[in-house]
Design a protein around this nucleic acid. Structure first.
Lengths: 356, 356
DNA sequence: CGGCGTTAGTAACGCGCGTAACCTCAATCA
DNA sequence: TGATTGAGGTTACGCGCGTTACTAACGCCG
């Protein structure tokens, strides 16, 4: 063992396997007494003196509770599990972060299991099932499923055995509660920002029009325009691949189609990657941002938005918040409280930078 | 409980708390027999008939082992813990991914604990200590520490109680084994690539010159040049903030300083963010990539490198590999095998795209 | 026929802990 | 004075499982 090669031990010598029994002996009390003071039972009567004696023994021996044994005896693991695609996930991390922090606050542990398949919609849920199964073997008290992009998903059947919440996705065929970004409000906010800056002729660089994100954001844009007495000109909406190249190409198309007055003075790109491409298309045509063309993105992919020149004004997807809310919802569910709502919408805040 | 509201149960009715005892009763054998067949003991003699009867019972009852109880009884948790800064981490994810996958292969679980403090070098290791403590309470059999950028760190003392491996960082004051990228080889590979393309006058956009990454990469660059009979002209090395703006500014300086023949024909940017800024500086001066100026980056930040136009040729940091290697090393340590080396260097592969 | 080896199991203990039930003793009260 | 109460603990059981004895039945050999 490498253990034997580590000479330094803290003053409080802490050797492998200090148990509550050792603490009890060292303090000259029963193990039960130790258990009582450690778990802070209020209706237990332990004198102040023995209480401190026990605490001293804990310190001196370097006792550390065994979470597994505690879980076994109390029948509560204190764990939640989250299954998510961690690979292709510049996003998933933030969800995990939010969930992790919240769980930490609630003195719970978050077990993270990988579900690495982009197209989890299909029936090949082998790995995902395995992940769920593993988590249930650990006796998690609740399950979180997080997707990397807003969509409907199917959750393994065994998830029904335990409170379950979906994050950034929704149950395609059931009644599981979910937490998703308010795409529509986000789209509205983005266009309102452009309107406020005086733009009335706004081009939209759209995603694949069928995905929930595109539907919601576009709908929001339409609402904002309507509120200003304007229509969304279908001619000004162009779709492309959700990449920088796609954005470059789509923006180029829209910019070349109109000249002078008719050319849009602002571009609403439905994600930041496309905005990145749009930047190039604009600059190549000798136009400036935001002078000639204002650009607003969506997603707030830090690595892109914060480093583009000029920095990209965009609408943020509230991943951390959704993660935290997921854990909170789970806590409410496991406590037997009723669900607040089947689907909770979380605000997408506008991040002002320099491209509008 | 929300449980009672989930009506659908699989054909194999799986209710809460099916234990080995239930399986035993259902199969008409002792619990020990069940344990034997489930753990596949070879020296146990169970007839083929009862073995199948037990397996059937497992299926019918939907028995699922209780990992915690198993850990308690066997004194082996099967868990590793990794503590890492998951927030600011476009990187940490990949380490986790690599470690996670490897752990999964070894039928182990990876417990992920957050250590959210950028400057973990200082003595304010409160949170980190808490994370380590929590992991030890779960009786992890080994610990991994992952940093988001290559540097020296101090590890909480309690980490000594269990085999420990550092990833993308090294023990600033001890003998803990570590796994770090081979920065020098990476720098060499990058410059070799530029030399191969015929460039002999190469500008270097440097990071903060004191960090390990800068030292190593620059040293590698020097070696590659030396091997080609060239010197690294100190005039051509400029430092800047490790951001896009820093790269923009530094690249601008170097490009404006020299004209005609003396102007470098290639830029080695020590990270991709700076390369992103360099792109802008180059384009603004009416120069093309890679026609007039070739650019090579470092880090392979997908979101940047793969979406810049032209796509950025860069040297990748082998995060996933380091994560996997970390778990493998841990497995070797826990198995009592000697450490392969105090510090393992992992190759940084060149990723050819279109900027050279 | 008695002893022995082998096959096919079972009984019982303990892992570290939470917890209900119980016990002891001094103080209080009618 | 005997009964009652509460403080301050302790004894004992069980959580679900791995594992080490141990046992019972059977075939085989001399």
């Amino acid at each position: 063992m490498a253990k034997s090669t580590t000479p330094q031990q803290s003053a409080a010598v802490r050797q492998r396997g200090v148990t509550m029994n050792d603490v009890a002996k060292h303090a000259g009390v029963s193990r039960t007494a130790v258990s009582f003071v450690l778990s802070n039972r209020e209706n237990a009567s332990i004198s102040e003196e023995t209480r401190t004696r026990i605490n001293e023994a804990v310190q001196e021996l370097g006792y550390r509770p065994n979470a597994g044994a505690r879980a076994l005896a109390s029948q509560r693991s204190g764990w939640y599990g989250i299954v998510t695609e961690i690979v292709t996930a510049p996003f998933a991390v933030d969800i995990i972060k939010g969930a992790q922090d919240q769980a930490w606050l609630d003195r719970r542990f978050l077990l993270i299991a990988p579900s690495d398949q982009a197209d989890a919609v299909g029936p090949n849920q082998g790995l995902e099932d395995a992940a769920t199964e593993k988590l249930l073997e650990q006796r998690v008290e609740g399950l979180l499923y997080a997707a990397t992009f807003h969509r409907g998903v199917h959750v393994p059947e065994s998830a029904n055995e335990v409170p379950t919440v979906l994050i950034n996705c929704f149950d395609a065929d059931g009644k599981l509660p979910s937490i998703v970004p308010d795409e529509r409000a986000g789209g509205r906010v983005a266009v309102e920002r452009l309107l406020k800056a005086g733009h009335t002729r706004i081009g939209v660089i759209n995603l694949d029009p069928v995905i929930p994100a595109a539907v919601g954001r576009l709908e929001g844009a339409r609402e904002a325009l309507a509120a200003a007495g304007l229509d969304l000109d279908p001619e000004l909406v162009v779709s492309g691949y959700a990449t920088a190249d796609g954005g470059y190409e789509a923006a180029g198309r829209i910019l070349d189609r109109y000249q002078g007055e008719r050319r849009p003075t602002a571009l609403f790109c439905l994600n930041d990657r496309m905005a990145m491409g749009a930047y190039d298309a604009i600059k190549e045509r000798g136009l400036t941002i935001p002078g000639d063309i204002a650009v607003i993105g969506f997603d707030n992919q830090e690595l892109i938005a914060a480093y583009l020149r000029p920095k990209l004004t965009t609408v943020a997807l509230p991943f951390e918040k959704m993660g935290a809310l997921g854990v909170q919802t789970l806590a409410a569910l496991t406590a037997g409280q009723p669900i607040i709502a089947d689907q909770q919408l979380v605000d997408c805040p506008l991040l002002e930078r320099s491209s509008v």
